[in-house]
Amino acid sequence: MTPRLLRAIVPLLLAVPLACAAQAQGKLLLTGGISSIDGSAGGGLSPWALTGSYATSGQTGATAYFTRLPVQDYSLSGYGASVAFGERAEVSLARQDFNASATGAALGLPGLRLKQTILGAKIRLAGDAVLDADTWMPQVALGVEYKHLDSGGLAPTLDALGARRSGIDVYLSASKLFLAQSTLVNVTLRATRANQNGLLGFGGSASRSYSLAPEVSVAYLLSRQWAVGVEYRMKPDKLNPSVLGDALREDDWKDVFVAWAPNKHVSLTAAYVDLGRVVPGLQPRRQRGVYGSIQFAY
């Protein structure tokens, strides 16, 4: 799929909610999660087994979001949309714009931006994360993300490193709300070979194989409208070593977040995110920053 075509699809997806004459508000507040950076419903960094929006059985719902994450030497902007078919399936589209001008300048690529498009699909296989409060059975979903990177001037470098420009992640998520304890736990196991989530391509000369990377999120509900939590996302490390030694070594991602949903149409999330080192050969310090995200649901 070409980026031009994808650009045409985004406004289309955004128009879906307007076409949804039926009110899709059958779920309880915040039980559709928020929009993760890859577009799927979840926490901020990790997809969950929940489907997005407030659509439950027999309803179709949609979400749209915008996210900003400035860190020390980079900044990430993202936007996207998703459509949920009841609590059975979800499709999502996300665009990421990663500003790497500082690193680009050091490589003779001023104004370097890495742009990634992510097409996601998720299907719920079993369970009800919220209502099955008397069992340990979680809600389980299988998801797939097709990622395409527009690496701009960095393309020859990625070629030299053996990193491809597109890749597919497959993940299995289990979400469980321990209702009596007001605590939601999600565990996602992702098969991936994405470097920095795909922003530095997929795989490398050292390894083309997939890795299984676990991701864990724990959220505590303070009220119907407020949740706080932590996330930890492990990552493969396919560009370490590379022809540049360990200059492209990558670290796990983690964050602490607070989410607020004043109603079923909008939610705001703030997080303190630690991306670890990103291209430590050029930017040796850890990349940390405050993440802000707004989501609209219909």
């Binding site: 309880l28 009800d128 919220v130 209502l131 099955d132 409060a133 008397d134 069992t135 209702l179 009596a180 304890q181 007001s182 509900l221 303070l222 009220s223 119907r224």
Partner: peptide, 29 residues
Amino acid sequence: VEDLQLAMDEQKVPFTVQNRLLALLAPMH
């Protein structure tokens, strides 16, 4: 469930207590 939550809010039932009751009712779905 939402009507019950609002009724409990009105009676100033703490959120954690509300969820302990909902956890007993939810499986009836």
